[in-house]
Design a protein around this nucleic acid. Structure first.
Lengths: 158, 158
DNA sequence: TATTAAAAAGGATATTATTCTTTATTTAAA
DNA sequence: TTTAAATAAAGAATAATATCCTTTTTAATA
C-alpha cells in the first residue's frame, strides 16, 4: 500500500488527463511496457482515489452556452446558519459551475456558464438578488478565454 | 445533417458529462433503446464537435495541490502586441489553469492550482511580478469550495 | 549471497465496441 | 390520404479491447 506516486504513475495521470479514451495497449507502447502493469496501475490509481472520475468535456459555445461570468459577492449578515443556506441555494442554480468561499475583497466567488448577456441578467435579477443579506455584487464578464483546462500540473508535486 | 440536438442527444451529453466510462449497453438500457443508435449518436456528437474530448478528473488535494487562487490583474500599457505577449507568458505557467480577459474592474482573471501558500507566493514573486506593465494585482484565495463541476446545464439550451 | 516481495511479461478469456443489414418510423410531397 | 424518401432503430455478427491468471524478472533486505 504505497502512498506515493512514482514516475510512471505521474506519466499515466498526465496522459489520462489529456485523453482518457486511450487504450491500455497504446499507453503501454508509449511507455515501453506491457499492457497488464499499465492496466493494474490505472486500477490502483482509481481505487486509491487519485483518479476521481472520467468525463466528457463538451464544447460550451457549440451547444449554445456562450458566456462565462465571474461574480464576487459580499454578504451583510454573517451568521453561520445563513451562510450554509446561502451556499446551498447558490449551488442549486444550474448556471453556477463553481462556488468558492474566498478571502480578500469578497466572501464568495462564483463562476457561471450561461447562454448570453440576457440569461446572465435574468440570473442576477430573478435568482441572485432575491437572496437576503446580499451585500456588494461585482461581475467580471469573460470577453475571451485564452486558457481553460482541467489538466493539473503534476511536475509541481514530483 | 441536422444541426440541432434532440432530447435523446441532450440526455446522452448529460450522462457522459457525469461518467464517460459507461458502456453503450448500460446507457441504452437506461434510455430504453438498443446499443447501436446510442453508439452512432455518440460518434456523431463527437464528430460534430459537441463532445470535445474525454478526460480523467484527478483529486487535486490527494495529489498534493491543495490551494486554489484567483488573481485579478490590471495592466498599465495596453498596446496590442504587449497584450498578446502577456497572455502567452501567462498561459505557459503550468500553475495557471484558466486565463480570461474580462470586463469590469480588471483586465484579466486567472485561476491557479498550487501546492500551498508558499507555492502561491513563489508564483507571485518569481513569475507574475516579473512581467512588465503590470498594474493592480488582487488575489482571492479559496478557503473552501462548495461547487466545482465540469457539467454544464443543458436544460438551458433546450 | 539467499530470501522475500513487488512489478512486469505474456497468454487466455470474457466483455464490449463496432459494423452491417434489415425493419420501423417519421417527414414531405403528390 | 397515400406514397416515396429519408432518418432512426433493431438485432446479429465480428473485431477489438479489457481483464484475469500464471510465470518470470527485478529489486530490496537480511
Amino acid at each position: 500500500m504505497s502512498h506515493t506516486l512514482d514516475n510512471i504513475d505521474t506519466q499515466l495521470l498526465t496522459i489520462l488527463q489529456k485523453n482518457s479514451n486511450r487504450t491500455t495497449k497504446s499507453i503501454a507502447e508509449e511507455l515501453g511496457m506491457s499492457t497488464s502493469p499499465i492496466f493494474e496501475r490505472i486500477k490502483k490509481l482509481e481505487k486509491e482515489g487519485y483518479i476521481e472520475k472520467y468525463v466528457a468535456v463538451l464544447n460550451n459555445k457549440k451547444i449554445g452556452l456562450k458566456l462565462t461570468v465571474f461574480i464576487g459577492i459580499t454578504l451583510q449578515g454573517h451568521t453561520r446558519s445563513y451562510l450554509e443556506k446561502f451556499v446551498k441555494e447558490i449551488n442549486n442554480f444550474p448556471e453556477v459551475v463553481e462556488c468558492h468561499r474566498v478571502s480578500g475583497n469578497f466572501d464568495y466567488l462564483l463562476k457561471l456558464v450561461v447562454e448570453d448577456i440576457e440569461a446572465y441578467e435574468t440570473f442576477i435579477i430573478s435568482k441572485l438578488t432575491l437572496l437576503p443579506y446580499l451585500g456588494n455584487v461585482q461581475s467580471l464578464i469573460a470577453l475571451s478565454t485564452s486558457k481553460e483546462t482541467n489538466e493539473i500540473d503534476l511536475s509541481q508535486v514530483l
